[in-house]
Amino acid sequence: MKKIIFLVLIIVSFSCKNETPTNGKLNIVTTTTMITDLVKNIGGDYVNVQGLMGSGVDPHLFKASEGDVTKLVNANVIFYNGLHLEGKLVEVFEKMGTATKTPIALGETLDKNTLIGSDYFASNYDPHVWFDINYFKQFSKKVAEVLSEKDPTNAEAYSKNLAAYLEKLTALENNVVGIVNELPRDQRILVTAHDAFNYFGKAYDFEVVGLQGLSTATEAGVQDVQKLSAFIIEKQIKAIFVESSVPKRTIEALQAAVKSKGHEVTIGGTLYSDALGNAGTVEGTYIGMFEYNVNTIVNALK
């Protein structure tokens, strides 16, 4: 009952809300840290951006607080990943879509025929699309398009920011290819806490294995740990990886299982999967996060 009342209040608030921008700037609300960073790059000084999720926050499990609802009510535009990544927010966004404004699900704008299928999500697709830089470029173009429609006065600025950011993403692509090529293909096996890196694997020819599957909402069982430990020993994998937004105990249990069978595997470092690093750090940006992850993976597996 409380949930129903909560959603009704959201709809009423949205229906009655005056969407006047603050200080002449659009009020933008974003969900994941990757999208927050993206919108800041495209919007620049012409938008106010508030992200609902911070560093280390798992979007699969995130629930909106009353404060988050206030941010959503005051927004002129809402950008989120979609493809059921923000599982707990889906119903909220669906209710909003029936009111006076429709949140923009960036993942839903991609060509579904190119996405990786998944039975873990209601969308039937793996939602971790930001690990394919080409998809992130498409996100960037969509954000610039929406901002220009909402704020045509500054459309030229958004276009220039888009062009500059796309150049940086192309440079990132070239850099990543150079780093990955240092690692022989038979050593490109990436074992992590959950399957967030399938698009990365597809783009750079890695076999990706996640202990918890695609969604952190499911827990890894003893059989999962034993099965993956046998795989690690068979493939002579040198390192496995913790994720910043997932408790490290599952990977530590996996390491212990390998050791109990007379073998050793190191924890090669912590990867940023569903969230960026702390704000103000290199890893707190999409580009910095991507470069950090690739260097960490390659250096540990070499």
Results as ranks from 00 to 15, higher is better:
His84Lys: 13
Asp37Glu: 12
Val47Ala: 02
Gly44Glu: 01
Lys3Gln: 15
Ala256Thr: 13
Leu271His: 10
Val73Tyr: 04
Glu283Phe: 10
Ser13Pro: 01
Asp68Gly: 05
Val208His: 04
His128Ala: 09
Ala239Lys: 03
Thr31Met: 13
Glu252Ser: 04
Ala257Arg: 00
Ala193Ser: 15
Ser15Gly: 13
Asp126Ser: 10
Asp132Phe: 05
Glu91Met: 09
Ala203His: 01
Val209Glu: 04
Leu166Pro: 01
Gly44Cys: 09
Lys248Glu: 06
Gly284Cys: 07
Ser260His: 05
Val177Arg: 03
Asn161Glu: 07
Lys17Cys: 09
Asp119Pro: 01
Val246Lys: 01
Ser229Pro: 10
Glu108Ile: 02
Tyr165Lys: 04
Asp205Met: 02
Ala279Asp: 14
Val191Ala: 10
Lys88Trp: 05
Lys235Ala: 07
Ser65His: 08
Thr102Cys: 04
Tyr80Lys: 06
Ile297Ser: 00
Ile233Gly: 10
Thr218His: 12
Tyr46Asn: 13
Phe62Asn: 03
Asn293His: 10
Gly43Trp: 02
Gly67Asp: 11
Gln226Arg: 10
Thr250Leu: 09
Ile297Asn: 01
Ile10Asn: 06
Asp37Leu: 06
Ser244Ile: 06
Ser273His: 10
Leu7Pro: 02
Thr192Lys: 06
Ser215Leu: 04
Glu291Asp: 15
Pro59Trp: 05
Val209Leu: 15
Met34Gln: 14
Gly117Gln: 06
Gly97Met: 11
Ile42Pro: 00
Ala193Lys: 03
Glu94Asp: 13
Val191Ser: 05
Gln236Met: 11
Phe79Pro: 03
Gly280Arg: 09
Lys141Ser: 02
Tyr165Arg: 04
Thr36Lys: 13
Tyr199Met: 12
Pro103Asn: 10
Lys17Met: 14
Ser229Ile: 04
Ala196Gly: 14
Leu147Glu: 00
Phe14Thr: 03
Met96Arg: 12
Leu183Gly: 08
Asn181Leu: 09
Val177Pro: 00
Asn23Thr: 02
Leu172Ile: 09
Lys235Asp: 06
Asn174Gly: 15
Asp68Arg: 09
Ile78Glu: 07
Thr285Leu: 07
Val282Gly: 02
Ser140Asp: 05
Asn81Ser: 14
Gln236Asn: 15
Ala164Val: 07
Gly213Phe: 14
Asn175Thr: 12
Gly24Ile: 00
Phe197Asn: 04
Ala157Cys: 02
Lys142Met: 07
Val246Leu: 08
Glu91Cys: 06
Lys88Thr: 13
